[in-house]
Computed example of a mutant assay.
Amino acid sequence: MEISNNGRAADLAKILLGVQETDRTHNKKTASQQTQSQDRVQISERAKELQRLRAAAEQPDAERDARVGQIQQSVEGGTYTVDGKKVADAMIRHVLTDAVL
């Protein structure tokens, strides 16, 4: 089978190539237009606050690390005891706080 540049195949190729060339020139124009304008980023106050909180949360806490170490040693040594009343009080406080908020 031989395909020549005459007929529908050639017309279709011209249409497709013409569309592609138009897209290329349009992309070039938008790229040059983009270099002329400057992009700006604005960070909302809420995003800044979230960044600050994340940074604070990522800071090491020596007191917490020491307390976790003590509890870990107690659990491993078998001397860790849990006061059921304190746990229940904390759970109730937590539920009530969530209900209010």
Rank of each mutant, 00 (worst) to 15 (best):
I43Y: 06
Y80V: 01
G69K: 01
A99P: 02
L50G: 01
G84T: 11
K86E: 08
I92T: 08
V100E: 12
A47V: 04
Q51H: 10
I15D: 14
N27A: 10
Q51V: 10
A88F: 13
G69Q: 02
T25H: 06
V82N: 03
P60C: 02
R64W: 10
R52Q: 13
G69E: 00
V82E: 06
T25A: 07
I43R: 08
A9I: 15
L17C: 11
T25M: 07
S44P: 09
E45A: 12
L17V: 13
G78C: 06
E45T: 09
L16P: 04
Y80R: 01
V19N: 13
M1V: 09
R54K: 12
A10S: 15
V82H: 04
T79G: 03
K85N: 09
L101Y: 05
Q72T: 07
S44E: 11
V68N: 02
S32W: 03
D23R: 10
A31T: 04
R24M: 10
G84C: 05
A9V: 15
T97W: 04
D65H: 01
A13Q: 15
Q36W: 13
T81G: 06
E45W: 05
K29Q: 13
S44W: 11
K29R: 11
Q36C: 12
A13C: 13
R52N: 10
E58K: 15
T35S: 11
A9T: 14
N27Y: 01
G69A: 08
A90S: 09
G18D: 14
T22S: 13
P60Y: 06
D39I: 13
E49Y: 06
A47W: 01
Q33R: 13
R24S: 09
I3L: 11
Q36D: 14
E45Q: 09
E63D: 09
